[in-house]
Amino acid sequence: MSHRELDDMLGTAWRKPPLVRRAWLRWTLLLGFAVYLVAAFATIDVDWGRVYEGLDRGWAFVMSFTRPDFVSRWSDIWSGLLESIVMTVAASVVGIAISIPIGLGAARNIAPLPVYVICRGLVAISRALQEIIVAILLVAIFGFGPLAGFLTLSFATIGFLSKLLAEDIEAMDRSQAEAIRASGAKWLQWINYGVQPQVMPRLVGLSMYRIDINFRESAILGLVGAGGIGATLNTAFDRYEYDTAAAILILIIGIVMALEYLSGVIRARVQ
């Protein structure tokens, strides 16, 4: 805006300057968005009759949360839940153990270039593939059962944890690590004394968070036959046994809340 005098400006209207200054671009964006919305809604074709019918069932489901049925399918629920927990624990342990060396390798400031490229590639593959797709492939290869689920979760853990660990190492305080190196430490000693103390609190926090995610994911792997509570839940929905489904969902929510609480406590203690 050019420098204008007060007298020119008095009596002129004032408008908030628009976010996008070029008018044609602003209108093109708005119009494009509107056209997209119309097109998107037009292609959804909702069967409103079916939705209307479903409202009763939806209400029945909501009501079933007030009287969840833990009892009649307890043995199924219990074995499914146990399998989920077992997969979570085993996959978290193995995944965290593997992701530490890979995380070190994926940090540019401590790994040589070839190692860095390989580790980053591994991380990228693991992150691009979603758990459920990995699970489908692993079930096809290893057969049904928790082994496929365990491998899936371990693989996903590696992608998640290695990346964040590597970023943390890359952001660490260089001078502390240099001081240890200057004392003539070997590579492993250097990692142990110079790097580990700096990234440990965050590693613990992230690991706790990943355990939480692993449990949530383990609840769906059963849908494709990779073990866990998902299979039981799927069966419950198929049979329209909403009270059992509600019981399972309540258990999942409860465990996730407990895990979140636990990880909060642990994170507060390490930091």
Partner: peptide, 26 residues
């Protein structure tokens, strides 16, 4: 909607001019 009465807008202009910030209005 930022549709303030014109009298308010004029007063705002006058005040900004008084403190020497009229050119910074936007």
């Amino acid at each position: 909607l930022r549709r303030f009465p014109q009298s308010d807008v004029d007063e705002a202009f006058r005040l900004l001019d008084r403190v020497g910030l009229l050119h910074m209005a936007d």
